[in-house]
Design a binder for these strands. Structure first.
Lengths: 154, 154
DNA sequence: ATGAGTTTGGTGAAAGATATAACAATTGTT
DNA sequence: AACAATTGTTATATCTTTCACCAAACTCAT
């Protein structure tokens, strides 16, 4: 096909996709995950692991399943996540006080420092991404909207 | 732990996560994908396959790589996708007119009907999900913001 | 107290997506 | 003609998600 006939990305008709929140959400999130990777690559944590740390940091002593439920993933997925974070000495399993089946999760001292550093980086890139929004009020509005969409049931 | 002390999901402090667009986008998108699955389970198509159909439907004759680029995935991922859609007789590969390396993708007649039906369903559930937005103007606003976030670079 | 049913962390397997590298055939460029 | 780039494809590795299952531990009704 000659160059003057070749369709560029702009020429493509996205049809219904342009009006679908599901598709737009996916594209936006893909971009966020990619940028997260660029920023936190050397730290060795994924968005998922970061989320686990954020929960444990603010809610010390939670069990694995409690963290899984809070984040909306399967219990079994937590095992590998906590294994990895524990091997990096970022958090630790302690036997739960009143339930011998479960572990209570706590940040280590190094973990707290590590997470503070990670938050710094992620906040920085979040703010950079948010620059394409018009105001801080708009960001809050967007966060609120996403919250509602995340919990909407059919 | 006695029931009256047990932390429910509402009691958990999400910390920085509550302010991060990346996390909120992920949760919202997870919900959309789950609902898509509920609605389109029997049709045997995923959000990704639906997107391929939407592009081919509006841009007949596109090559596999062109579709992949439009959707932001790798061209190697298109092989399995097109294989599946072709085996379901929804679309077909035709030898490209002027490039013997590539195939041009077209909807079949059944495929067009199939896709129209799928669009009906997806539109229905999209509208249902969008009911937690206050107005149609707000939805457009949200779509516009997501578009910007999807293309923002650091 | 005891037995039924549930919950917890953990394992393993299956399924899915995603990324990369390589390949032959073909096309474009010089 | 020689060299580089592109297309569809395969293979590979990795990652995530999901499900069923297990033993240990816990809850609760009786």
């Amino acid at each position: 096909m000659p160059d003057h006939q070749k369709k560029s990305d702009q020429d493509i008709d996205f049809g219904v996709l342009d009006e679908f929140l599901g598709y737009r959400l996916r594209r936006a999130q893909m971009n966020f995950f990619a940028k997260f990777g660029e920023v936190c690559d050397d730290l060795g944590i994924s968005p998922g692991l970061f989320a686990v740390l954020a929960i444990v940091d603010r809610n010390p002593g939670l069990t694995q399943t409690a963290v899984a439920q809070a984040l909306g993933n399967d219990r079994s997925a937590m095992v590998a996540a906590v294994d990895k974070l524990e091997s990096k000495k970022i958090l630790e399993r302690r036997p739960a006080a009143n339930d011998r089946r479960s572990y209570a999760l706590f940040m280590t001292e190094e973990g707290t420092a590590f997470f503070a550093n990670a938050v710094e980086r992620v906040s920085c890139y979040e703010n950079e991404m948010a620059k394409c929004l018009d105001s801080d009020k708009e960001k809050q509005w967007l966060l609120d909207m996403l919250e509602r969409l995340a919990h909407k049931s059919l």
